[in-house]
Amino acid sequence: MNNLTVTLVQQVIVPNDPQHNLDVFAQSMTAITKTDLIVLPEVFTTGFCAGARNYAEVEGGRAYQWMQQQAAKHDAVVTGSLVVKDGEQYFNRLVWMRPDGSYTEYDKRHLFRMAGEHTRYAMGKERVLVEINGWRVLPLICYDLRFPVWSRNRNDYDLALYVANWPSVRALHWNRLLQARAIENLSYILGVNRVGMDEAEQHYAGDSSVYGPAGELIATSQEAELITVELYAEKLTEYREKFPAYLDADEFILQHSI
């Protein structure tokens, strides 16, 4: 496992204007020199708005093609979530796009009922793991952060990432839970949020952050900008060897509700 360079892309998202948002993210990404993984926020083409389903992507559509182009251009994995229509259902779907154009998808498990997300989207049922440069990665979406069982490291990941539209009124929760997930899972954790205001005049402070396996804050920002950080494989291995709390973890079986 080699060191991993990650770039978090924190930007304003304009509701109901996918092409504008794609253009803004593409422009901001031109400043990237060399990285392995580029992480965009949740529903980065639309924002978490009431009419997002009107701009739903289809598999292989505009946003998928854009992600393929950006992954090839930067020779890096590009990931973030989209509103996707699949058959007659809509999903909040994370796409893990590789430079060769292949991809893996994860559908958001925990739908944010306080905003009615559970009435508009279908719930994901499968936990997904991906690999990059020898790193095992668990990709998750926003509200998933509140549920430690779903985020639990079963000795099968080195990095968990959360893409989000998490408003500043609950910024304390965002920051504390990201740190907690790092500490309890002995893993690197990164969270990518948005900034600015949404159509409901709800403010987003960003706080896109990277935490180390001991819970130490490595980087954070409240600005519309890129955050590039190197994650150290040797540091992760050494910490797990010195503090192997995972050896005393409780065993459990996760029951999948439908």
Rank of each mutant, 00 (worst) to 15 (best):
H203K: 15
H110E: 12
R152A: 10
A56E: 03
F44N: 02
F147A: 12
A31W: 02
N16L: 10
R127T: 08
A171Q: 15
S28H: 04
L190G: 08
R93W: 06
R62N: 09
N2Q: 10
Q179I: 04
F252Q: 13
D158W: 06
Q19R: 12
R146Y: 07
R154E: 15
V137H: 05
V24S: 00
F44P: 02
V163L: 07
I13P: 01
V163Q: 02
L82I: 02
V169C: 13
L178R: 04
F112L: 04
R127V: 10
A219F: 04
N16V: 06
V195N: 00
V149I: 13
F147T: 06
W135K: 03
D207Q: 13
Q27P: 01
T104V: 13
N193V: 03
D75G: 02
I227Y: 05
G51V: 10
G191Y: 01
R93C: 11
H203R: 15
V39N: 00
Q68I: 07
L178H: 12
Q89C: 11
L254P: 00
A160C: 14
N92P: 02
P244Q: 08
E225R: 11
I189Y: 07
F243T: 11
A50L: 14
Y162N: 07
A72D: 01
Y246H: 14
A72F: 12
T46M: 04
A160S: 12
D156I: 09
H118K: 07
P41I: 02
N16Y: 05
K125E: 07
R170F: 12
E131P: 01
K242I: 04
S168V: 12
Q68V: 02
E251H: 11
E184P: 01
L190I: 09
G196T: 05
A160D: 06
L4V: 05
V210M: 06
N193T: 00
E105H: 10
G212S: 14
V58P: 02
P213Q: 13
W174I: 04
E88P: 09
G80F: 09
Q65Y: 05
V229L: 05
R93I: 00
F243Y: 14
L217C: 08
F147W: 07
W96Q: 05
L145Q: 15
D198L: 06
E126G: 00
E105I: 11
N92S: 14
T7R: 00
F48W: 06
P148T: 06
I183F: 11
F44W: 14
P148N: 12
N165Y: 06
V169S: 14
R176I: 00
Q222L: 00
A160G: 14
E117G: 06
V58L: 09
T228D: 00
H20L: 13
G206Y: 06
F48M: 11
G87Y: 07
T30N: 10
P18T: 08
Q255L: 15
W96R: 03
A71L: 13
R113T: 15
P99M: 14
T33S: 08
E199R: 03
P15C: 00
P99R: 12
Y157A: 00
Y121K: 03
A171V: 06
A76V: 10
F112Y: 10
S168Y: 08
G191A: 11
Y162W: 14
I253R: 10
W166E: 12
P167C: 06
L40C: 07
E59R: 13
N54T: 12
H20C: 08
P41G: 03
L159M: 10
